[in-house]
């Protein structure tokens, strides 16, 4: 990476006290860099430390140990300077429902140090850009989910931050609103050279937007790199077989693990997944023949190039969706 790093994180440690139980180590030495002017995707299972990392980088909480620089400024020593350079959009709505969209933007701008006139002009500009002009003077309470989320991001951008933290910006949005948000995030990095740190429930989103991914698990960084590099590193394709009968999954898994050229066999519900190490063209027929010989009915069989889901599964040992459902708990905690 030739671009200078917008964020440098070094050995962050954060421990939370839990009454009556040993303390929980949410971060256990997290280190990564985020290149400037690009999207960094921060991924990981529920409780892996994503939210804690974001809370530290946005100065909402302080690390027990370790250091970080955001936009070149030392985080722990100069939190006020970091706050002026950061924008932060929490996973929950960040606007006041009892104010209008315009009032929210103007207040946010003024608190960030813009003068009255500059704040009004910036609010107009953002309302236009996020297609909220018609709703500008309505109370946010009356906005749809997609409109409210666009306003959240607009509020985060009001002071033209160097680094924008987007915590699940598209959760709960319909496909149309999500596509709009993606286009806007791409515009921020491509045209305005802003650095965006993104957490998401959608690997598709990370795959499309992020130039660089950091996967955290158990408070540590377990993998990092460009999405394409991570996929290439897996080597081999993914075989997914759906068995016809619930009870047969375990047996199908055993059969698959004995087939030459298959590795990393996992089962989930009626699905058996594995990765090929030999030529996929040979392995799939061999697997189907072996299942047939073991009297396991097969409903479907597919072969795919590695996806980000496969990367995630192989690194964390868990399918991505499994962690996503419980994510809201982590957010609330």
């Amino acid at each position: 990476m030739t671009a200078p790093s917008a964020i440098e994180v070094q050995d962050l440690v954060k421990t939370y006290a839990v009454r009556g139980r040993p303390p929980v180590r949410a971060l256990d030495g997290v280190s990564f860099d985020a290149p400037s002017g690009a999207v960094l995707g921060l991924l990981g299972p529920n409780g892996a430390g994503k939210s804690t990392t974001l809370k530290i980088l946005t100065t909402l909480t302080r690390p027990d140990a370790g250091s970080a620089r955001v936009a070149g400024v030392a985080l722990v020593a100069r939190p006020a300077a970091v706050r002026r350079r950061n924008g932060y959009v929490a996973p929950r709505p960040v606007t006041d429902p009892r104010d209008t969209g315009r009032e929210n933007l103007v207040l946010a701008g003024r608190l960030q140090g813009l003068g009255a006139r500059a704040a009004r002009a910036r609010a107009d500009e953002l309302l236009e850009r996020f297609d909220l002009g018609a709703a500008a003077d309505r109370l946010v309470r009356t906005y749809s989910g997609g409109m409210a989320r666009k306003l959240d991001v607009a509020v985060g951008l009001v002071h033209r931050p160097e680094v924008l933290f987007l915590d699940e910006p598209t959760t709960g949005l319909d496909p149309h609103a999500r596509a709009e948000m993606w286009a806007e995030i791409e515009r921020m990095t491509h045209e305005e050279r802003m650095t965006v740190v993104l957490t998401t429930h959608y690997l598709e989103e990370a795959d499309r937007l992020a130039a660089h991914l950091v996967i955290v698990d158990h408070g540590r960084v377990v993998a990092g790199g460009a999405p394409s590099d991570l996929k290439d590193a897996l080597r081999g394709d993914t075989v997914v077989v759906e068995v016809a009968d619930d009870g047969a999954t375990a047996r199908a898994g055993e059969v698959a693990s004995r087939v030459t050229g298959l590795r990393e066999v996992t089962t989930d519900g009626r699905t058996v997944r594995a990765r090929t190490s030999a030529s996929s063209a040979v392995v799939l027929p061999a697997l189907l023949a072996a299942l047939d010989a073991a009297d396991v009915g097969v409903a479907s069989a597919t072969l795919a190039r590695p996806s980000l889901d496969d990367v995630y599964l192989s690194i964390t040992g868990r399918a991505f969706e499994a962690g996503a459902a419980a994510e809201t708990e982590e957010v609330a905690a």
Binding site: T58, T59, L60, A80, R83, R84, N86, Y88, V89, A90, P91, R92, P93, V94, T95, D96, P97, A108, L111, Q112, G113, D152, V155, G156, H159
Partner: peptide, 16 residues
């Protein structure tokens, strides 16, 4: 109410 929404966190992450 501000804490239940992300309003308080937004204020605290800014120079407010």
């Amino acid at each position: 109410q501000d804490m239940e929404r992300g309003v308080m966190d937004r204020f605290l992450a800014s120079p407010t």
